[in-house]
Amino acid sequence: MNIFRFAGDMTHLISILVLLLKIYATKSCSGISLKTQELYALVFLTRYLDLFTDFISVYNTIMKLVFIASSLAVVCCMRMHRVVRRSYDKDLDTFRHYFLILASFVLALLVNEKFTFQEIFWAFSIYLEALAILPQLVLLQRSGNVDNLTGQYVFFLGAYRAFYILNWIYRYFTEQHFSRWIACVSGLVQTVLYADFFYYYFISWKNNAKMQLPA
């Protein structure tokens, strides 16, 4: 464990807490893409298949449980909660995310570390995570204005993978046999996808203005 990875995990945790705060505090999920939340639940469920077979550390196990539980909680809340679900931007959240699932699965069958059930689903979860934010970014683009908590949610979500890139660089230079090309390349793509969002987020922060994405 290194400081970059720990910072990344904590930033990821913060992003989830900000999302839960937004939904419970405002009793609204406007501006949040249910499709992105469903993709994230799928990412965690397929990545942590080794939850009960490979024990890495208490920290690792607890964080896996937190990520799985929180992502499922958000999806259930957005689908079931009678107040929250009314504020879901159903007609704006129309990204065809099934294509992202299909593309990630096909790529995982072709590019993986080992052609085993667990490794294919691990690679699938890595590729899907890189693409999972797309419905959310499209939704924000369409809705134009980004409320503070949603903006902070997406910002922390993007920042966490940027910390992981620093973690991979650090591990590459400090560990002999470190080669996580699948995670590195996918994490790079993931962070780049946030680039334009980061740009407009920074502009709005600098001008101390409400964040506007060009329609």
Binding site: R5, D9, H12, R47, D50, D54, I56, N60, M63, K64, F67, E113, K114, W122, Y164, N167, H177, S179, R180, W181, A183
Partner: peptide
């Protein structure tokens, strides 16, 4: 790339 036995990252 050599196969990691298990993925220690989240």
């Amino acid at each position: 790339s050599d196969n990691e036995e298990s993925h220690d990252e989240l």
